[in-house]
């Protein structure tokens, strides 16, 4: 089955239909997606700013203990609400370039965050290496957010 046919099958699913046909469901999920976005921004920024020497003086590795549950929670909430939004209109998304840009940058952002940013921050310090990774992490998430908003305009 091609990706397009899969999208059609998802669109016809009961879940997709329920979200699409309800007046309040899509906006409610969308609003939750945005609330989680704010939480992700805050939890990543508080660590990132400290690494870059532009925020808290507390060691970034220390901040992680508090920030990481918010970061993980926000990412989980974003993925769940994002999937629900996608399930309601997959055929439309299939044809939108911004959606694919978002999915690719999302994959990159997740890999950088969990396989580069988190381990580098945990190793400690504010050296060039961890600063570079931090910059890339911020750029990746910014790209995800911009491409995400652009889906609605394209």
């Amino acid at each position: 089955m091609s990706i397009y046919h899969t999208a059609q099958a998802i669109e016809a699913s009961a879940l997709g239909q329920t979200i699409r046909e309800s007046t309040w469901l899509f906006p409610a999920i969308e609003a939750t997606h945005l609330l989680a976005l704010a939480l992700l921004g805050g939890s990543v920024l508080i660590i990132a700013l400290s690494v870059l020497g532009l925020g808290l003086k507390t060691a970034p590795a220390e901040l992680c203990k508090s920030a990481r549950p918010y970061m993980n929670g926000a990412i989980i909430a974003l993925l769940i609400t994002g999937i629900l939004l996608g399930v309601s209109e997959p055929v439309k998304l299939y044809g939108r370039q911004a959606f694919w840009v978002k999915m690719i940058s999302l994959a990159i952002a997740l890999v950088i965050t969990y396989f580069a940013f988190n381990p580098a921050v945990a190793r400690g310090g504010r050296g060039v290496g961890v600063r570079t990774i931090t910059g890339l992490t911020l750029a990746a998430w910014l790209m995800v957010a911009m491409a995400g908003r652009w889906i609605g305009f394209s």
């Binding site: 957010a145 911009m146 908003r149």
Partner: peptide, 27 residues
């Protein structure tokens, strides 16, 4: 509009982290 939405991450994001500190639950 995209800039408006993305700035939420900066504004409400930092506010939320400070609020969690003021609640005494984090940081």
């Amino acid at each position: 509009e995209s800039t408006h939405v993305i700035s939420i991450m900066l504004f409400v994001g930092t506010i939320a982290m400070v609020d969690f500190r003021l609640l005494g639950v984090s940081y």
